[in-house]
Design a protein around this nucleic acid. Structure first.
Lengths: 74, 74
DNA sequence: ATGTGACTGATAGTCCGTT
DNA sequence: AAACGGACTATCAGTCACA
């Protein structure tokens, strides 16, 4: 379970970073548009912390994908 | 965004309840095995609150699905 | 067996920086 | 641009009594 959490969180980190790069967004831009803190986006991309569903939704909207796609391995 | 969050959260609630029923588990049983509180499972199934990734992982493991499946509309 | 409100400790998430 | 830290606040995680 802790294993699953770590895996999921890493996939999440990869996907967010990949999607963000695709969209030519900086962490700062993404954070601004998603209305979350700049340092928190950084944390999520480093697979640190434990983001809530709300934050994941906010990010997915800005990244232009459905939430579940954030969990799909690339 | 708030709309997306509400939608996602409702899908989540439906899926968890459906999967739980499939597995013949009570909220209590699911809660016990996933190591979260019974009333918290109740809250999630009622689409109240804002569960963290960790909690979602815990539940998905017990329900025998990948996390992303929790976000797939049935 | 579940829904609900109230309550608190833990931590998610922010805001200020420096490297 | 991004990683990282410290201090702070909002809210989630988790428990309880009760219907």
């Amino acid at each position: 379970m802790a294993r699953s959490f770590d895996q999921v969180r890493k996939i999440l980190a990869q996907n967010i970073r990949a999607l963000r790069d695709e969209g030519q967004l900086s962490q700062e831009e993404l954070a601004l548009r998603a209305d979350v803190d700049r340092t928190y986006v950084s944390q999520i991309e480093r697979a640190i912390g434990n983001p809530s569903l709300l934050v994941l939704c906010k990010l997915s909207v800005v990244l232009g994908v459905d939430v579940k796609q954030l969990f799909d391995p690339i």
